[in-house]
Design a protein around this nucleic acid. Sequence first.
DNA 1: AGACTCCGTGTTTACGTAAACATGGCGAAG
DNA 2: CTTCGCCATGTTTACGTAAACACGGAGTCT
Lengths: 347, 347
Amino acid sequence: MDGATQKPAAGRRSPKRPSMADVAAMAGVSSQTVSRVVNNRSNVEEETRQRVLSAMRVLGYRPNTAARALVTGQFRTLGLISFGLGSFGNARTVDAVTKAAQRAGYTVNMIAVESQTERAVHEAFDQLTVQAVDGIVVIEAQILDTPALRLPPDVPVVMADGDVSLRHPMVDTDQALGARLVTRHLLDLGHETVWHVAGPEDSYAARRRAESWHATLKEADAAVPQMLFGDWTAASGYEAGRVLTRRPGVTAVFAANDQMALGVMRAMIQAGRRIPEDVSIVGFDDIEESAYLSPSLTTVRQDFDVVAERIVSLMIDQIETGTAPAATTFVAPQLIVRESTSAPPTG
Amino acid sequence: MDGATQKPAAGRRSPKRPSMADVAAMAGVSSQTVSRVVNNRSNVEEETRQRVLSAMRVLGYRPNTAARALVTGQFRTLGLISFGLGSFGNARTVDAVTKAAQRAGYTVNMIAVESQTERAVHEAFDQLTVQAVDGIVVIEAQILDTPALRLPPDVPVVMADGDVSLRHPMVDTDQALGARLVTRHLLDLGHETVWHVAGPEDSYAARRRAESWHATLKEADAAVPQMLFGDWTAASGYEAGRVLTRRPGVTAVFAANDQMALGVMRAMIQAGRRIPEDVSIVGFDDIEESAYLSPSLTTVRQDFDVVAERIVSLMIDQIETGTAPAATTFVAPQLIVRESTSAPPTG
DNA sequence: AGACTCCGTGTTTACGTAAACATGGCGAAG
DNA sequence: CTTCGCCATGTTTACGTAAACACGGAGTCT
C-alpha cells in the first residue's frame, strides 16, 4: 500500500485495462514476477504471491491474450468448421466438442460454412488460420477430399466424419456397425429384406451406412432392394416414403437418420399402413423426439460425447507433440429398440 | 527475383511462419508498406502493391492476429455464451448469430456453459474476457439477473432472451405475441379455454409466453385453468400430458415448445384421444419435425435469422461507437397452422 | 571454512503488427 | 522560378507478455 495507484479507474468506459506493469508497480515487484504468479510458476515466495494476487484483484487485472499468444505462439483455441447446426448430429457434435475443449482449457472458434463449395471451405480455413487457432476440427466435410484442396500444412487438423484415406486423423461413430445392427435386427424379426433410404450421396456417413446395409443383406442371402436417396430432411424422407408405399412387399425400412424416418412414417401412415404391424421403420441418431413419437422410433444412438472427447484429445496431442497419427478411430453406437419395429405381417 | 529466399520451407512442419518483414525483404520494400497493402490502404502505388502481393503469395504469408490485436486492441471476435446446443432454439440462434457475425467480418468464440449456476456463468465470462473478444452475446441466461453478478464493465454485451430490465441491450422474439396468436387461434376455433404446459419457471421466454397466454384468456373472458410446468423436454411434456388426460374437459393444449407438445401428443394418443378431433395441440418453435408428425403440429415459428442479425448489428454498433442502447428489440413470430388443431368436439 | 547449488527475484529482449512521425520528390499555384 | 503541399514510402516506437539470462543470498557438501 504505497498509494501508487495512478488510475484506479472505476467502472468508467475503457480507461485502458491494467497491464502486468501496473500490477507489478502496485505490488512492488517486477512484471516478470507478476507473470510468474499468473502462470502459477513454483518459484515465487508465498508472501510475494499473495501481494501480487491482491494487487491483481484490486486493479481488476486480466491477462492480455493477444500479447501472450504473440510471445508463446499458442492461442489455446481450436477452430471448428461445420456446415451449420441444422442437423442434429452436427449440433450435438459441435456442442460436445466445445465442452470437451473447454475441459482441456481450450476455447472454440466456430465457423459455419454456408455451402459445401470448395471456395467456401477454403475461405473458412483462411479465416481460421488468419484468425488465431492452434488446430482445426472439421465436421462432416466431404468436399475436403478434393485433391485440389490444399490445406495449410502448418495447422493440425482432425476430422469428424470424413473419408478414411485422408492424411488427417479422423474420429467418427462406427457407421457400418450401426447399419449392421439395424439390418440384422430387422432380418432377425423375420423380414425377408430391408429397404434403405440413404442420406445424400456425397456424405461419407451416408455412404458407409448404405454399404454396410448392403453387405449385411448379402451376408444373409437376402434380396437387395433398390436404394432411395434423401438429404437428411424429413421432407426428403417423406418423398422417399411415398415412393415406397407404391412398391409391393415393403415390410421394413431403414432410414439413414431419424428425421427421414419420420418422413417415411408420415407417408406410410397417410397411405393407411400401420406401424409396426404393416411396416417396421428404423432411423439413425436417436434425436430426442424419437422416443416420443407415436409409435416411438427404433433407432441407433451415437455417443457424441466420446467422439468429441477423442477428437479433442487427438487435437491436443497433435498441437503439443507435433505428431499426427493419420489413423481413424471408430466409436461404437448402440441399437435402441422401440415400438416402430416388429415381426412382419403374416401372409 | 533476387533469390533472397532464405527458408523456402516446403510442407515441412513449423519452420516458422513468414512475417511482414520476410515479405518486405522479398518485395524490396519496408514492412510498413506491406502492412499498408494488407490493410488495403489507398496510398500504395499499384506496381508496389502487386510486388508485395506476389511476395505474400510466394511465401504463403498470413497476418498474425495476435500481433495485430495487440497493437489495435481489437480482435474482430465475438464471444458467445450459451447453455448448450441441446435445445432447438439455442442451436438455431447460435447458428444464425455465427453466420451473421461472419458476414460482418467477425469470428465467434463459443462457450457452452454446462450448468446455470452463477459460478459457471462467471467462469464463462472470465474465460471470454481473458480470451480475446470485443463483445459478448449471451443466450438465454436467466441467471444473469442476479444482482450479485458483476459483469466486466468494459466489454459490450448483448442478450438474446433475458429480462428486459437489464442494463444491456436485448433482442428476442416477441414471445408474448406468439403466445397470444396461439391462444386466440384456439379460442377462435371455438374452444372454451386453453390449457398451458409452460417451460421452466426460471426461463424468461417461458414466463412471457405463460403471462401472455394468461392475459389473452382473461381478455376473452375465458376460464384460466391451472398451468403445468415442464423443462422443455419431450419427456416433461409427456408427464404433463398424462396429468391432462386425467382432467375432464381438456380440449385444447398449448405447450411452450414443440418438444413438450410432442410429449403431450403421445400421452393423449396413449390415452385413446384423437388429435385434433378430441384434443387440439399447439407447440412453439416450429422444429423441422413438426411438419411431419402425424398429425402435423400447429406451432409458432420464430425468425432466428432476423434476431441474430439484430444482435450482431447491435453488438457491432456498441463495439465501434461505444454507445450502449439498453433497449429491447422484439421480432415478430408467425403462427403456423397445421393438422393438430381443429374445432372442439361437439357435445 | 570454502566452493557449489539452488531459489527467489530482477533485467533485457523478442514476438509481429500498426500508429505516428519523417523524408524526398514532384506538380500546382503564385 | 520559387514555395507549398501532397503522395508514396521509410523509420521509429509502443503494444503486453514470457523466455533467457543475470544475480545475490542462503543452505549443503566435503
